[in-house]
Each structure stands twice: as structure tokens, then as C-alpha cells.
Design a binder for these strands. Structure first.
Lengths: 394, 394
DNA sequence: GCTATTTTTTTTGGTGTCCGAAAAAAAGTT
DNA sequence: AACTTTTTTTCGGACACCAAAAAAAATAGC
């Protein structure tokens, strides 16, 4: 907060810190707290003048799209969540033509309530379940929508004139983990989320990896058993068809493997009921969890073989049942993967926390916001550039 | 070659190019070709003075370790291969205690023959089949060795005082592809090699990805069928157990799936025989290739789901049989992967070329050599550094 | 109350990298 | 021989950063 601390963190000299901070003060991006002394039991020496980010310098919006819900957060430049709300919509009727307008209206109303003008929003970050194409800025397919290929980024950019970015919800959890504990969650790690579906997030070489078109890490729809159980995506044998809530219910109630997932009443309640049964010793429930654990072990084995992460995090609502799956998972891992590859990695089981998705969205958007300002600063600096050198920014 | 061209390529001003090149000339890293005019039909204007890398500035060694063979290349600073040789050794007897000495002797003799002193070798790059731990610098397991955990990097570094780096051979093919055609092979792409085993190389976000411990992309030992065919690694159902040469021979000759791979005479000859049979219309051979193709399709599907590459390259000796596998592969891909994920990627089938591994090794080592010199230059520059700032190298 | 001490911040002068503009060099053209 | 063209070098300056010194603002001791 004080200049001297900034110097330590950035490893810049005090002289440079003074130069940079005075620039930022001029631009109004940071504020000096000379007036309100925080009455710290001051040691002697010249007191440090605290600096803080100017909360009003810019705003970002985070939007999480799930079945029937749009969850919005308004965050100021200092990273504080200023306002939140939840808007309901009808997932079963939402498609490429109707949803963009619904989302724009929801955000507009939200900003109006918050008393923030459109122009002050610099970044909009979106997280959605399902197959999200970050590159094209659309949702290829998601349980939250009836249609396919729902465009999100360009309608929002047109409507608000802000940078917009859409990503898979599990990617946002991955980003949130890195931000919450960079020491533990850095380098190369993977996050597997068992919830309404099965998702994976990859953090590779110190950055979030989302593949060439942005749909990377669709772990749930990687095949587990050729020609196996029917999956929500229409194919057979996907990992999700053995691991998700409907798959557990289907297995525990001895429904045939080709029972249409849409007809199975699963969801949070179905899973909770199954958990209760398992806790009270029900054979079918226990067996279903054990078998799902084994499948998970096989999935984890494939991730290790292909990605070789330092750490693997398991999370999602289904983690409440992990104790019933653990043994099965260990067995599956043992069966599927040669010992040479099974060393050198650690497994975290993380209790599920809804807020992770929001934190990740905010972290990601804040980072992009920083880049916006950095880019703007560079553009101001080069008044008459001889040429635009993309790499090597001096 | 001329300063003006360097300026265009690096996007530095002519003034800066002159400054830098005169430094490099002083250091002896580059040479000026003032004497031997290449008699280009000179346009008017001051003639360009050509510069070239000083071939004698440093040397690198590339070593490829395969079954019974050590293939060495000596490359000068200009990237020219100065000398090559092949040294035989007994893979069946090579283990952690014996092999390092064998390799050191082979390299020593090679250098002696070439008349290059040890001290002039700056980089040694090694490629090996199998599970290679880049981080620890050892081969965890490889068909080229009888034992496990063969240390390579530290013995070589001790013996030659040069930087040393070991990697999987498929990774080197991946690197070579990027170097040979950076336009086509950039960003995020995957290479699958079907040969003596099944390997994969990943190029993600414009860099070679080798995972946390360096064993990434062990595609061949990712599970395909739980409890399935016996693999060379000892587990059941690995992709390799359906796709590699021994697997093809095993399937075509109707041997049971748990036949020990070590007892199957496959290799180049076995594969060639099977190809002949298929070409002459043999049902069993055709069926074996078709089925292997299907398995490959499933494997490719898993890579697409998890990695989302822009491009996928198939190569390796077995590509001669691709025409017999193609239909099966398309079927497998169709069966395994939902259409939403199957778009947006292209498939290259690349005829196999042994030299790729060497080119990749050289490319990688040259790059590391550049970094060595860059680091050395920076260290010279900072005579009395106030602090060592790891990132932001000014 | 005054001086000394401590700590933070700012100022000053200097270094290194890069650039633009001008000058120099080395050819061909007329 | 004078002019044109192209490459290379030189020169002065902009910018980012730093070290050292100076200034500022507090406490501690007498």
C-alpha cells in the first residue's frame, strides 16, 4: 500500500516507484490517503503515505450463466464487489436469437439500479456451463440453453462498448484457485469438477489453457467406454455418462445404460437422496458411488498420462460423496496407469464453494482490465510510432 | 544476412542493428564477409556487407537413444551438421549403472574423431523413446534400456560441463515441425506418432508442453478399454496395446489379448509383412488395420476433447498403413466425440522421416544455446547488480 | 525545547537501450 | 565529374530505470 512496499513487491527502486505512482495519481487511477491517518502505532521515521486504487476509475461486470439463472456482480477498480443480483430466465426457451437480448436487458437494469453509467464499465466477464468457444465468443452447447451456438461476446460488446470475454465455468474455478493461493496452485495443475456435469480446467505452464478454439478440457465428453452408457451429449460412453448426477442415479436404480439422461430426475435432490442412502448403508447406492469412483480413477489416470500435472484438484457438489468414491478411485487409478507415471503428483479434494466461479471471473477480468490500461498507456506514449512492434515491447 | 535485413526481421532501427552487430563482432559470435564478395548482380547503392554466424563460436551435440543405438550429431554455431555417427550398445544390458558411462564414452570418442575439444561443446540435447522425465533428467522407462530410472543429464553435465537436456523423441518431432513450418505448426497442435510404440507431442500456446515432471503426453499409456488387452507397460487396455506394431500383429494372428507383448515378433519386419498381406487383400490384416484405425479415432477424440488442438498430425512408421486405417479412424472419431467438438480442427498425415527427431533436437538445443549467450551477456552487463530481478529483464 | 535518529519520499544526475535524422560510405548512372 | 541510390555509421535525444543524496516528517533522548 505504501510506496516502499510497492518497491519491495515489484523490485523497483524507490525512485522509480515515485515516478510511476505520481503518473498514476495524475491519471486518477490511484489515490493518496494523506488525510485519514489510519492511526497505526507509528514507529518513528517519516510516516508512509498510503496509496490505494481509485475504486471509481473503472468497473467490471461478472456474469455467470447457469440453468434459469443469470448471476451478476459489479466490481470496482479496487476489486470490491459493489453489487450483486440474480435474474431468472427460461433456459428451455433461450436460444441464439432470444438470449442475447435477455442478457443485455438484465445487465442494463442491473447497472441502472447500481447507478453506474454504461460507459464506465470496462470489462465484462462471462462464465457458462457446457461447451464454450472462447475464441468465437459463443456458447456451442450448454444445459443452460435450449439452442446451440448462442452468441454472447459480440452482442455485449456492441451494446456496452466494453471488452467482453466468455469462458467455461470450470476454467474460472481454475483461475480462482490460482488467485486464492498462487503458491499452491501454479505451474501445471488440473481441476476436475463433478457437479451437474463433469468439467475440467487446466492451468499449464502458469497460465489458464483453453485450447485453440477455447473449448479445451471437455473432460466429461472424452470417451471412457467405447459404445458404453448413453450420455446427455448423444454419444455413448462419455465419462460424464458414468460420473454425473444422472449417471449415478441411473446406475443406483438399475435403469438400463441407454436410458435417456433427460428423463432421469437427478439434480441436487437426486444426488442428496443417493447420498443419504449411501450413508445409511444402502448397497445399491454404495456400489454406484464405488463404481463412479473407479471411473473417476480411470479419468484421472488419462489426465495424468496426457497432461502430467503437478497437482490435481477434485471439486464440485459431488465431492460431498467423495468418501464413498475414494476407494474406487484409487483402484481405478491403479488399474489404469503404470506406476512410473503415477508418482510425482498430489491430489487435493476441495469442498465445493459456489463463489469460486465468481472469484475466478473477477480475477480474470481484473487482469484483463490491467492489460487494457497498460495498452492505453503504451498507446499514449507512442505519439508518432515509427512502426508497431508487436513483440519485444522494449 | 546483411544488417538492413536484420533490421527488417527484428524490427529494430538500422542504428541499433549496427550497435548490436558491432558488439557481436567484438565477441566473435558473428563474422563479416567483406573479403569474399558473392558477386551478386549488384544494384546500385552502397553494397550490403554480409554477416554470418561464426561456426566456431560454439558446438552442440544431439544424441538420439533408441534400441541398441546411440545416434550422435555434432552441430556448429551456424546450425550446420558437422559430423554424425552411430554407436551400437546392448539395450538388454543397459541400466542405470552401466549406461551413463557408455554414453559418455561414445560422445568422448565422437568428439575426439571430430577434433573438437570438450570445452567447446555448450549444449547437449538428448532424445529417447519411452517415459522421459525432463525435470529430473532421467529416463523413467524406455524400450531402449533394461533398467528403470536411468540418469542421463547429471552424468553428462559432470563429464562435459555443458548444459544438457533430455526429452521424449515425439516431443522433438513436434519441435521439428514447428521449426520446419512455423506458419502451419504454431499455436496449439498435437502430434501422434505410431511406431515402435505410440507417442504424442503437444505444442500448446506456442511452446512445447512437457508437463510438470516432463513426462507429459504419454498418450500411448492412457487407458482405452478398462481391463482390456495387455500392454508392454504391464497394465491392461492402454491405447498402445491396440495400436502399436505388436498389437497389430497380435490382433491379425488371432493371438489372445493377454499374450505377452515381449514374446511377439513384431518390429519393422512384422509390420511390413502385415502391410503386404493387407495390400494383397488378406481379411485378417485388413480387419486388424481397420480396428486399429477405430482405436486411433477414439484416441484422437480424447485428445480433441481434452486439448482442443487447431491441428493434429499423424506420423510414424505405421503411417504407411494409414490408407488401411483411415476409414476405421473416421468411424471411431464419429462414435466417440460429439459433433460440437469435432469442428475447427484439421488433420495432417505426414509420411515418416527419421530425420525429424534430429532436427528437433538441434532446433531445441540451438534455442537453448541462444538463451545461454543472452544470459551470459546480461550477466556481463550487470557488474554490480542491486538485486537480481528474475522477471522483467528490462 | 532542542537535537539526534529513523524511516519514507523526492530530487538529482547518470547509465543503457533504443530511436530518428543526418552524415558518411560505396557503389552505379549520366 | 556530378548525381543518384542504397547501406552503414555517427550523433543527439527520449525513455526507463537506478544509486546516491537531499528533503520531509515523524519519534527518542537529553
Amino acid at each position: 500500500m505504501a510506496r516502499i512496499d510497492l518497491g519491495q513487491i515489484t523490485r523497483l527502486s524507490p525512485a522509480t516507484v515515485t515516478a510511476i505512482t505520481s503518473d498514476l495519481l495524475d491519471q486518477g487511477l490511484i489515490l493518496s490517503l494523506e488525510s485519514e491517518e489510519p492511526k497505526t502505532p507509528q514507529a518513528r521515521g517519516r510516516p508512509r503515505t498510503l496509496l490505494k486504487l481509485n475504486p471509481d476509475a473503472a468497473f467490471i461486470i461478472g456474469a455467470r450463466l447457469s440453468v434459469n439463472n443469470i448471476d451478476l456482480s459489479l466490481v470496482d477498480f479496487a476489486g470490491e464487489v459493489v453489487r450483486e443480483n440474480r435474474t431468472k430466465f427460461d433456459s428451455a426457451a433461450a436460444d441464439a436469437s432470444s438470449f442475447p437480448e435477455i442478457l443485455i436487458t438484465a445487465i442494463s437494469n442491473f447497472l441502472k439500479e447500481a447507478g453506474v453509467q454504461r460507459g464506465r464499465v470496462q470489462e465484462i466477464g462471462i462464465a457458462a456451463q457446457g461447451v464454450v468457444e472462447t475464441e468465437t465468443g459463443q456458447v456451442a452447447w450448454s444445459p443452460a440453453f435450449a439452442g446451440r451456438k448462442i452468441p454472447i461476446v459480440s452482442p455485449l460488446q456492441d451494446a456496452f462498448g466494453a471488452q467482453c470475454y466468455i469462458s467455461n465455468d470450470t476454467n474460472m474455478i481454475t483461475e480462482a484457485l490460482h488467485w486464492s493461493d498462487p503458491n499452491r496452485y501454479s505451474g501445471t495443475f488440473a481441476v476436475i469438477m463433478l457437479d451437474y456435469g463433469v468439467g475440467m480446467g487446466l492451468y499449464l505452464n502458469n497460465q489458464l489453457f483453453s485450447g485453440a478454439s477455447g473449448t479445451a478440457a471437455e473432460f466429461g465428453h472424452a470417451n471412457h467406454i467405447p459404445g458404453g452408457a448413453l450420455c446427455r451429449c448423444g454419444k455413448r460412453g462419455c465419462l460424464e455418462a458414468y460420473l454425473s448426477d444422472y449417471a449415478l442415479v441411473r446406475a443406483a436404480t438399475h435403469l438400463p445404460e441407454d436410458t435417456d439422461p433427460m428423463t432421469i430426475r437427478a439434480g441436487v435432490r437426486g444426488l442428496a437422496q443417493l447420498l443419504e442412502k449411501a450413508a445409511s448403508g444402502d448397497e445399491n447406492a454404495l456400489k454406484a458411488f464405488h463404481e463412479a469412483g473407479r471411473v473417476l480413477g480411470y479419468g484421472v489416470a488419462r489426465v495424468i498420462a496426457m497432461i502430467d500435472p503437478k497437482r490435481l484438484v477434485l471439486t464440485g457438489a459431488a465431492m460431498r460423496a467423495f468418501s464413498f468414491m475414494e476407494k474406487g478411485m484409487q483402484d481405478g487409478l491403479e488399474e489404469a496407469l503404470v506406476a512410473d507415471l503415477r508418482n510425482n503428483f498430489s491430489l487435493d479434494v476441495m469442498p465445493w464453494n459456489e463463489d469460486f466461479i465468481r472469484s475466478g471471473l473477477i480475477a480474470q477480468s481484473m487482469e484483463r482490465l490491467d492489460k487494457d490500461f497498460l495498452g492505453a498507456a503504451e498507446r499514449t506514449a507512442e505519439d508518432a510510432p515509427r512502426r508497431d512492434n508487436a513483440e519485444m515491447p522494449a
